[in-house]
Amino acid sequence: MSASVTNRADLRAFSAGMIALAVILAIAVLGMTIGAVTLSVSQVVDGLAGGKSAFIVTQYRAPRVVISILAGASFGMAGVFLQGALRNPLASPDVVGITKCAGLGAFLAGLVSPPALAIWSIPAGVVAGAVVGAMMLLTIGRSFGGGIAALALVGVAIGLFGQALMQYVMVLFPTRADQSMIWLAGSVYGSTGAKVMALSLWLVLCLPLVFIAGLRLDAGGFGDETLISLGILPGRLRGGLITVSVLLTAGAVASVGSMGFLGLLAPHAARLLVGARARHLLPVSALIGALTLSAADLIGRVIALPNEIPAGIVAAVIGGPYLIFLLIKEAGRHD
């Protein structure tokens, strides 16, 4: 009986994952057909294989599609880890201001360092910003005693502050305003093969950590007293989960800016589909994150032709109502 139940849950997660994957692929191909020159699906496939449209497909369109998938998956997993670590369904890096701080870090780093060093300084700035944001959240949030909405509100305030600070710097350095708009709103516009390489490399480096943290994610749902009784140090466990979440967020923000609400939406949608067990939740949340960002980008590109709405804005429009829905659903529970 045990085996059959586990198998049923596994099967469910597997089919959900496969369907998500199929949709992602469909959106990816569709995404590569659209642009200044409309290509047919066969032209895209041909281009990927090195055919006639190879340049436009592999240089411009494929990187953008791949970045959407990788960054979306990162946001999706980062949300799972942070929510698990803090046992708070609203605690995703985008709701609690970590992505905004990471974006600010990137913008400031790009501002102060010479352009030649930007390739190093911007990622460093992203990581620094994300870490500072997470530390502020935890320090301030802890002293609040940790109500679910309280922590989220603290994070929102931190995010608003980070955003205002970035806007202020934008005013000071108007020539850099374009860049800061991207960090602020989140966009996959202008993705290059180099960016794809950088993010892939980062994710490969993070992968062992993601794997280890994933195995420990379920335990994060226990209270601290139970953890101690089991011989697990709660501080180390939660600190580790938060660290992985911050690393994933940093990687994603460094490539696409502060995308809104993906880290909130993906884990919740995944939980509805496949339940709360880490082994099902984590991969499915990653896939749904990838799916959502790809879809947001596609929508942003086609909805207002010839203009392009940054994917981050589309994601906020899709994801924000979800937060409100969650609040209404969770109203009266927990605290």
């Binding site: 046992r87 749902g221 226990f222 009784s229 089991l230 939980r271 709360a276 067990r277």
Partner: peptide, 14 residues
């Protein structure tokens, strides 16, 4: 030694 807290919190859906 194992300790069972007064109202233990568990992960969802276990």
């Amino acid at each position: 030694l194992a300790l069972l807290p007064q109202s233990p919190v568990s992960p969802d859906g276990l």
